[in-house]
Every structure is written in structure tokens, then in C-alpha cells.
């Protein structure tokens, strides 16, 4: 994960010859992907043709679109920068990463609002299930711009590397297991009714006879209509899930559309007893919610 605290020099992670071709959002994504792959032991090098990239974003390419169109109006098409135009596509970060790292498997990007990163993770898990790839680099990336409202976009990228456990090399370090994942698009105001049942289903599929004693992390938009509180209360009072503890985090301001992957990374670091409050939960349910009612939920276990 590449935080926006300025403490990591992103440009030091990418060769300058490459870096100068990249738009800022792609640079963030490539740095984060490189870091994640290095931590995983660079598994993509064994079968780059069976490695894919699935990235979610809300604003990748938008800043470039704004800048290019402004240049187009001011200078005309002959003098506007072709490099700017090339990077206006939302898939620019994933594409630059595949070129930079020689990844030739199935790759795509997907758009969603606040839940773009968890949307990508859901799609990535599906692609593994479909048999289209053996290893997938997934997560979210967003790019800020002076003309994009800050509530919509922050600079940042969060990346995880996923592979089926049955083909995972023995020497690989496993940070966590996605033991269930479900995605649904309901109506925002109905989520307090539908969400507990949805999560309960995937929990019962994973552990049919066990109560949930873990941590529920909810990434939720700050909409002051009471729905957020009702969601939290519904989960707390659920007979299956209520035995765990619930924590809500606002999905804007500092989390962009990659709050879902940030929670995943945070939870993998906490599983096994490292939660900030000293809890020793070894299971977590991560819920990423958008104001349009999109909801991606996954069970993470150690």
C-alpha cells in the first residue's frame, strides 16, 4: 500500500526512464504493485502469462482527461500532448504495470464509486475461480486533481497479491485467506435489512456450526440519513454476527475508492492478535459499501 504521507519516494521505486512516461496515478499503482510483488517473492516471474491484474478505480485517467481537453482547447490537436491523451484511459495504471513488469495474462480495470477496490477484488477472485489466471494482482488506485472534488478522489493505491491456496508455493508467506466473498447491489436504504443475511450466508458457508467471534470492519460513506447507524446496529444485533465486534470507517477523505483494499491490508496485519485494541480475533468480515447500495463483503481468516 502506498500511503500519501510523503514518506515513501514513489519515484525511487520505478526507474526514471519509465517513470517519466507515467501519469501520477499510474506511477502510484506501479510502485504499489512492485512493492507487493517483491514482498510475495515475485511469483509473476514464473508464469507471467497466467498472471493477471484487476484494478478498481473511480478517477484513474480523469485528471489526464481534464488536462488533455484543456490543452486541446487552448493549443489544438496538433500541439496537444499525445502522452496526456494516452493516459486518459481508466485502465492506464494496470496497463503500465503490465508493460513495466512483463505481465501478459488476463487483465482489466473496473469502475465503481466508493467500492472500486473491493469490486476489483471480487472480480479478481472470480477470475481465479473461472480458471483464467493462477495469480492475480488486485486492489485499487485513485488520483487526485485540483478540479476533482476531494471527497471523490484521493491519491493512493492499495495492492494485494492473490492466488489459490492449492497452487501456492510452499515457501510463500500467506498473510491471510479470503474464505468467502460476495457482492451485491441493493438499495442503500435497504442495506440494514439485507446485509446481515448476506454476510451470514457466506459465514455459514465457511463455518456452518461456529459463531462469529471476529471483527467486522465496515467502510461506509458518510451520509447523514441514519442508514450507517442502522447497518452497524443490525450487524451488532445479528444472532450469528453479533458475537463479534463492529467497527465503521468513513469511506471518503483519505481512503478514496480504495478503502476496501486498505481494510483488507489492515486486517491481514491484525489477524493473529495484533489488533490495535489488543483483541485476538483471527477472523474478520470486511464490508465495503457504496452510497448506491453496492456492497462487497469478504471473510478474511488467518
Amino acid at each position: 500500500m502506498v500511503p500519501q504521507n510523503g514518506k515513501i519516494d514513489v519515484r525511487s521505486m520505478i526507474d526514471s526512464g519509465w517513470a517519466r512516461r507515467l501519469d501520477p496515478t499510474s506511477l502510484l499503482a506501479c510502485a504499489a504493485i512492485r512493492a507487493a510483488l517483491a514482498e510475495a517473492g515475485n511469483p509473476q516471474s514464473r508464469r507471467p502469462d497466467r498472471t493477471g491484474i484487476v484494478l478498481g478505480s473511480r478517477t484513474a485517467g480523469l485528471g489526464m482527461s481534464i488536462d488533455y481537453t484543456a490543452q486541446l482547447c487552448e493549443l489544438g490537436s496538433d500541439l496537444a500532448s499525445p502522452m496526456l491523451f494516452t493516459n486518459t484511459v481508466l485502465n492506464a495504471p494496470a496497463s503500465h504495470a503490465s508493460i513495466l513488469m512483463g505481465i501478459t495474462g488476463s487483465s482489466f480495470s473496473c469502475f465503481a464509486h466508493e467500492t472500486a477496490s473491493s469490486e476489483a477484488i471480487w472480480a479478481a477472485v472470480r477470475m481465479l475461480d473461472f480458471g483464467r489466471m493462477d495469480l492475480v494482482i488486485t486492489g485499487g488506485v485513485d488520483g487526485a486533481h485540483p478540479r476533482i472534488p476531494p471527497q471523490i478522489a484521493e491519491d493512493g493505491a492499495g495492492i494485494v497479491v492473490l492466488m489459490p491456496e492449492d497452487i501456492c508455493p510452499v515457501e510463500a508467506r500467506i498473510f491471510g485467506r479470503i474464505s468467502g466473498i460476495v457482492s451485491e447491489q441493493s438499495k442503500w436504504e435497504r442495506l440494514p435489512e439485507t446485509l446481515p443475511d448476506l454476510i451470514g450466508r457466506i459465514w455459514r458457508a465457511y463455518a456452518p456450526s461456529s459463531s462469529f467471534l471476529g471483527r467486522i470492519l465496515i467502510s461506509i460513506p458518510e451520509i447523514e440519513d441514519g442508514t450507517g447507524e442502522r447497518i452497524s446496529r443490525a450487524l451488532t444485533e445479528d444472532p450469528i454476527l453479533g458475537t463479534g465486534s463492529v467497527e465503521c470507517r468513513p469511506s471518503c477523505f483519505g481512503r478514496g475508492s480504495f478503502g476496501g483494499v486498505m481494510d483488507l491490508i489492515f486486517a491481514t496485519e491484525c489477524l493473529g492478535g495484533n489488533w490495535p485494541d489488543g483483541a485476538r480475533a483471527t477472523e474478520a468480515v470486511l464490508v465495503d459499501i457504496s452510497s448506491d447500495g453496492s456492497c462487497n463483503s469478504m471473510i478474511l481468516t488467518s
Binding site: 485502465n91 482489466f108 480495470s109 469502475f111 472480480a123 472470480r126 451485491e184 447491489q185
Partner: peptide, 25 residues
């Protein structure tokens, strides 16, 4: 039930059809 919006520039819609194919398959 849900929608997914893949974006790969000029091949976006083909990626969409492929994903839908796998989901039905």
C-alpha cells in the same frame, strides 16, 4: 442481481462479454 463495469479502452465491451460468458459457464 448486479452489474460490473470493466474498462480496457477499445476492448472494454469484449472483456465484459468474456466475463459474462465465464459467469454463465
Amino acid at each position: 442481481s448486479r452489474h460490473l463495469v470493466p474498462l480496457t479502452a477499445c476492448s472494454s465491451a469484449s472483456v465484459a462479454i468474456g466475463f459474462a460468458f465465464d459467469a454463465v459457464r
